[in-house]
Design a protein around this nucleic acid. Sequence first.
DNA 1: GTAATAATCTAACGAACGTTCGACAAATTA
DNA 2: TAATTTGTCGAACGTTCGTTAGATTATTAC
Lengths: 197, 197
Amino acid sequence: MRGDGSVLTKGAQARARIISVAETLFNKQGFDGASMRDIAAAAEMQPASVYYHFESKEELLWAVWEKGGLELLDRVNDAIAGKTDPWQRIETACIAHTTGLLDWRRANQALFVMPPWHYPESIKTRVISLRDEYEKIFIGLIDDLPLRKGIDRRYLRLTIIGALSWSLFWFKKERDTPASIAKQILSILRGGIDAAV
Amino acid sequence: MRGDGSVLTKGAQARARIISVAETLFNKQGFDGASMRDIAAAAEMQPASVYYHFESKEELLWAVWEKGGLELLDRVNDAIAGKTDPWQRIETACIAHTTGLLDWRRANQALFVMPPWHYPESIKTRVISLRDEYEKIFIGLIDDLPLRKGIDRRYLRLTIIGALSWSLFWFKKERDTPASIAKQILSILRGGIDAAV
DNA sequence: GTAATAATCTAACGAACGTTCGACAAATTA
DNA sequence: TAATTTGTCGAACGTTCGTTAGATTATTAC
């Protein structure tokens, strides 16, 4: 705690503000579409000042990515913290995942979810390791599920995460809610779809 | 047919060559990352010559998109043409879809699948209408399936396409094949996963 | 109060970008 | 063969980009 009552230094505040506006602009206009000048203007400073806090545009991208990833990680972990029933745990996690993507921090949608195909190796590895850590949650949750014989747990995980995350591309807030999407998808998966089975 | 035995005019050949190299470069480096100079060099011509065939970079993008979309459309339609059993039809279509994305025209992966969030309205509407036409195939196939009571066919379609398409982000050709991915995912969905159901 | 450090500023550099212009060559048509 | 269209070219225009250098102001430490 500082003398004026604030908890962050001026520098840390500026850093957070830059990450926040960059988050918004990267998502709205894409990484290439959002210039450092745009970001600086939105953060109400000069372009050069941004470089006092981040040494390059790519490092700023990573900061945005990391913030979004850790937030989603926390969100899902918090959601399942109290539950014990395996099916309830996975449903809660799915709802948190979908809500986090669709509602909560819209800015991180494309960034956290999309693979950084066109970005430099240094960032790619960091993003992938963050994603891996995130997927570990689901690996654990799915391990605890009592499944039909013959179900490949890896395919199941990829199916769940894929189906949920794909909602990024068709979600319309007038029609669906993140929670209902997660519930419906999980229910389809859980019970199967074939009338004859 | 022309005098020299070729079936295309010189212009049409050049156009096709440009689309082909642009397809590759857009996918490898992204739309912004691939410059008109890169594309022209790969097509073995001067940048200015590209503008004789396409009036802008965005129109070239659309041409790439359209080619990939129509090819995938044809691929899926051809695959289901002979089949009559509803489950066999959807499985065949899923395999064709996944194979088309993962194997066949790698260049169109991100382009056809990803929403053109950051692209101008004129292109966005054309891409969306192409995607809609493609999804109509799956709407028809799913309408014909004998499903358990209470299954929402729209959610089911989005789940199937989402789970399959998400494989773009984790597919490793050393480990999976497009056909096995499609089969496994469909089998999970068909029978359900809960041991108790 | 004074020195040191942290943060922001103005100004600009060099490179890359999409695109255009006008001349020139190749192919087609009459 | 002459006229016309089709396709390609070299050269450049104007703009925007990420980034940097150096001066200047605010904040902190002694």
